[in-house]
Amino acid sequence: MTEQAREFWRWSETAYQTDDVDWRSAGSITVGIDVGSVSSQAVILAGGKLYSFYSTRTGSNSPDSAKKALSGAMDGTGMSTDDVSYVVGTGYGRVNVPFANRAITEIACHARGANFMAGPTVRTILDMGGQDCKVIRCDDKGKVQNFIMNDKCAAGTGRGMEVIADTLGVPIEDIGRRSFEIDSEPEPVSNVCTVFAKSEATALLKAGWSVNRVLAAYCAAMAERVSSLIDRIGIERDFFITGGIAKNAGVVRRIERITGVEALKLPEGSNLDPQVAGALGAALFAHALLKKEQKERAAAGADL
């Protein structure tokens, strides 16, 4: 890619910090870091309450991505890594969180994070990450009960959508809206494979399709693929979507159409980002683990 070329596939980095919580008097700072193949997130809890988060693209060097996400979440708060009592790492790149006290599977973290974010009524979670797609079923506490993931293929994932964004020169934030600006819904493209996506999209444009129509066909194809995955372990209300593609209405609304189940929306004005569900779950586990350790230490102290 040349210097001037725009990177259409890039999601903007997201950051959040609240002034409602004073971390210095909060008692404990716990952190969850989710290093995925495409993006990395850090969530900071102060006294078990959400304090800040940051989401950034995963670079080729994962330990750097973990640090970058964490320093992004700490930026401007006056907090330093010395103030952190417990860190849980998760995601495919989780071993690259060298400063983590513990690593926990992303399946558990996503369910826990989704439960916190969208409430205890959530039973089915669809996580569309950068390079994989998972469906998780959980109980009212966010405990995982069933799980399935796509086979080793990036089609139907964030990476696949990025290829399309790049090929068509459409910023990824606009894909959802534009995929509905069409006269009639086209047939889904036959092939969502990222390897063929480029040439197939180009061929459709040559055949006279509008860019929006091609986008619609791609979103539809991806929605079909994901829906058939959901079908394999069944969908139970409430249904919640996490991961980067949760922000792509073009895919989400089509999934709702196919499954006949509307996905839970975060309340208007919510500061949460469905992309940080994994890191949020990890941070909540970090908080619980810290409390457990403190209790054990207190009990051991009482024994002496």
Binding site: Y92, T105, I107, N146, F147, K152
Partner: peptide, 14 residues
Amino acid sequence: YTQRESELLARHLQ
């Protein structure tokens, strides 16, 4: 190994 772990967890959960 993280992917393999997920596969084995999926099998266990199912």
